[in-house]
Structure formats: structure tokens, C-alpha cells
């Protein structure tokens, strides 16, 4: 994921300092890993170096001195370009679930038992996410990110259900052969 573009996006709402950007990022992307301060500052410095952001001023509000940044016109153009650019659909999905099932089949393990257990774990997580997004007062960012995660877990589950059904058919074929 492009931290620089996300920070540019947050700066599009007005000048901000690093601390504030980190806080707003973590709020907007509640299911994502929180940004580290170090990463925020390095990224801001690179944005300035590349002419996409500039220093807006330095203030201290009684506390430690803090530098505010703002987006440049070039930054706004870059942001618009990135936001409209399609993301390549992943050509190969390498995933631990997939790998485990394949290895389990190759090594004569019990992929069906694994798939059942994995389904239970996925469902548990989906219940948590559903509770999160249907809670009273859930904000839009929470709902959207829960939806996103739910749809991806759902895709895993559909693949897992199809695979379990295929394994049953294959086993039946082998047994009657």
C-alpha cells in the first residue's frame, strides 16, 4: 500500500503535522496496521524532496515545536493520478490457506479436517467484523473497512467450500476406481 499517497490524500484536506497525520490515518483505516511515527516523518521528507509537499510553517502551541506540511499543486496532480489508476489484479494469489491445502493433499494429510477448522476460524472473525460494523454509531470508515475484510474472508470461504466439495468427489472417484 502506498503510504505516500495516503498521506497526500490526508494533506488534501488541509495542512497538518506528522502527529496529526498519523492519528487521522489510524482513524480512517481502522483495520490497517497503525502507522509508525518514524514512517510518517520519513515519508513526509520524501514528499518534500520530490516537490509533492512543502513545509507550511512551524508552531509550538505551548508544546514541542511541530512542523506542518501542505500538499503542492504537483502533489494534488500526483494524488489524482494515483487514485484513478487501476490496481493490477493479483496474477497469482499466494496464500497460506492455499499452500496448506496443497501440501496436505501431496503429503497424504487430512485437508478436509483442516478446511473445517479454518472455516470455523474465518466465521469467528466474520462474526466479530459483523458486530463491529453493525454496532450503534459505527462510523463510515469502520463500516467500509469491515465490509472489505468480510468480502475477502467470504472469498476464502467460497474457495474453501468448493475445494472441500472437490476433495469429496475426488476421494469418491478414487474409492470406486
Amino acid at each position: 500500500m502506498s503510504t505516500r499517497h495516503i498521506l497526500l490524500g490526508l494533506l488534501a484536506q488541509g495542512p497538518s503535522h506528522g502527529y496529526d497525520l498519523k492519528r487521522r490515518h489510524d482513524e480512517r483505516f481502522p483495520q490497517a496496521r497503525p502507522l509508525a511515527y518514524g514512517q510518517v516523518y520519513t515519508t513526509l521528507q520524501r514528499l518534500v524532496r520530490d516537490g509533492l509537499a512543502e513545509v507550511d510553517g512551524t508552531g509550538s502551541d505551548g508544546g514541542p515545536e511541530r512542523t506542518a506540511y501542505r500538499s503542492t499543486a504537483e502533489g494534488a496532480r500526483e494524488l489524482a493520478h494515483w487514485a484513478g489508476e487501476i490496481a493490477p489484479p493479483a496474477p497469482f494469489v499466494t496464500n497460506e490457506i492455499f499452500a496448506k491445502v496443497v501440501v496436505s493433499i501431496l503429503s497424504g494429510g487430512d485437508p478436509e479436517a483442516y478446511l473445517r477448522a479454518q472455516r470455523a476460524a474465518h466465521m469467528e472473525r466474520m462474526r466479530e467484523l459483523t458486530a463491529l460494523k453493525t454496532a450503534k454509531g459505527a462510523d463510515l470508515a469502520t463500516v467500509l473497512s469491515a465490509d472489505y475484510a468480510l468480502n475477502h474472508l467470504d472469498a476464502d470461504l467460497r474457495w474453501m467450500a468448493t475445494t472441500a466439495a472437490r476433495l469429496t468427489t475426488l476421494t469418491a472417484e478414487v474409492d470406486t476406481a
Binding site: 473445517r116 472455516r119 470455523a120 474465518h122 466465521m123 466474520m126 462474526r127 467484523l129 459483523t130 453493525t134 468480510l150 468480502n151 474472508l153 467470504d154 470461504l157 467460497r158
Partner: peptide, 13 residues
């Protein structure tokens, strides 16, 4: 639909 099942307390399959 797993997303519908996720509204339940528990699932049996």
C-alpha cells in the same frame, strides 16, 4: 451466504 451466517451466534454445517 457466509456474510449472512456471520450475523448468527454460531454455525452448524
Amino acid at each position: 451466504d457466509a456474510q449472512v451466517a456471520a450475523y448468527a451466534d454460531r454455525e452448524i454445517r
